[in-house]
């Protein structure tokens, strides 16, 4: 055994040396997308790919692993080899909710985060011919007629659901009846058809039928470039900020130089003006956040969401 030690040491040194000397990436990088090809996440990643090819010597190989609202693909990323050659897109708050509520075999701590690329805020929308012109008017009406107004959400256990829980906590008198829809298309149709009176929808989705909708407020810290005339909820005195974020991540435990390299490349992409222009054209509200800021945001959201789920009695003790 003793005789082996120097051999091992040499091997280790050699390994480290090659690791340092050969610049990552030296082979194509697998990009796991947890949703179907052609979906919103895919479109965003495809735009990134264009600029990744500009800044990195190796291409991406797209691997689609859709299913169970992203759980299947996210698990794939969490369990991938920690060599930096498999990375993927994650959505927040999806990964937090799936960890708490859906027996997912990963937690927000299973990943090494690269950065955030999209912040798609929720907004409150009604039909163009609706009598409501402000969110306050809705809250007042709901307080006088509890449960009469129907709000359409994509869900359950989604960003919309979280925002709705937050609404219930902060505006306890304004009681709405919530109806869950499978996706944004169904939800938009329900609002247009009058099945629900308002929806909580994302910018990216309400823009599809924007001719027919009136967006009352955006649940963001600042106004959105896609709807510059729409005030934030905070501007109107309702303290709700809620959104869906797209981030990129690798399985936890990458070598520091590899993850830092990834972070550096992504940062350069996100600062490229052509990239930002392409994102805007595709209706993707981009917002860059570096890994540290993103991690603290996710931790903060985890605590908030845990509190909301406990309050609703949804979080079962394990």
């Amino acid at each position: 055994m003793r005789r082996l030690t120097p051999v091992l040491a040499i091997l280790c040194a050699l390994f480290l040396w090659t690791g340092v000397a050969s610049a990552y990436p030296e082979k194509p990088v697998n990009m796991v997308i947890a949703f179907t090809a052609g979906g919103s996440s895919d479109v965003q990643a495809r735009i990134m790919q264009k600029y990744w090819n500009k800044y990195a010597p190796q291409p991406w190989v797209f691997i689609y692993k859709p299913g169970a609202g992203g759980i299947i693909g996210f698990t794939e990323i969490a369990n991938a080899r920690k060599d930096g050659y498999t990375i993927g897109g994650l959505n927040v708050p999806h990964i937090i909710l799936q960890h708490f509520m859906q027996n997912a075999r990963f937690s927000p701590d299973s990943f090494d985060y690269i950065c955030q690329v999209v912040n798609d805020p929720q907004c409150i929308a009604v039909r163009k011919d609706s009598s409501f012109t402000t969110t306050h008017a809705i809250a007042d009406f709901a307080a006088k007629n509890p449960g009469k107004l129907k709000v359409g959400l994509v869900g359950p256990l989604s960003g919309h659901h979280i925002m709705y829980m937050d609404w219930q906590r902060k505006l306890p008198d304004a009681k709405l009846t919530h109806v869950f829809y499978k996706g944004a298309a169904d939800q938009n149709a329900a609002l247009l058809g009058g099945e629900v009176d308002l929806i909580i929808g994302n910018i990216n989705d309400v823009m599809r039928s924007i001719d027919e909708f009136r967006v009352l407020n955006v649940a963001a810290e600042k106004r959105n470039e896609f709807l510059p005339d729409v005030p934030t909820l905070r501007e109107d005195g309702i303290d709700i900020v809620s959104d869906i974020r797209r981030v990129f991540a690798a399985p936890k435990g990458l070598k520091p130089e590899v993850i830092e390299k990834l972070r550096a490349i992504f940062k350069r992409i996100c600062e490229d003006p052509d990239y930002l222009a392409d994102m805007k054209k595709a209706g993707q509200p981009s917002e860059y956040l570096d890994a540290a800021a993103l991690k603290s945001y996710i931790d903060e959201q985890s605590a908030l969401i845990k509190g909301l789920l406990e309050r609703e009695g949804l979080l079962k003790k394990k």
């Binding site: 299913g67 169970a68 759980i71 299947i72 698990t75 859906q102 869900g155 359950p156 869950f180």
Partner: peptide, 22 residues
């Protein structure tokens, strides 16, 4: 089988994680 559309919880997975996708 899989995540149920109304509460989002996993059901009838026969103990197989992959069946969560239905």
């Amino acid at each position: 089988i899989g995540l149920d559309p109304n509460t989002g919880s996993a059901r009838f997975t026969f103990g197989t994680y992959a069946l969560i996708q239905g």
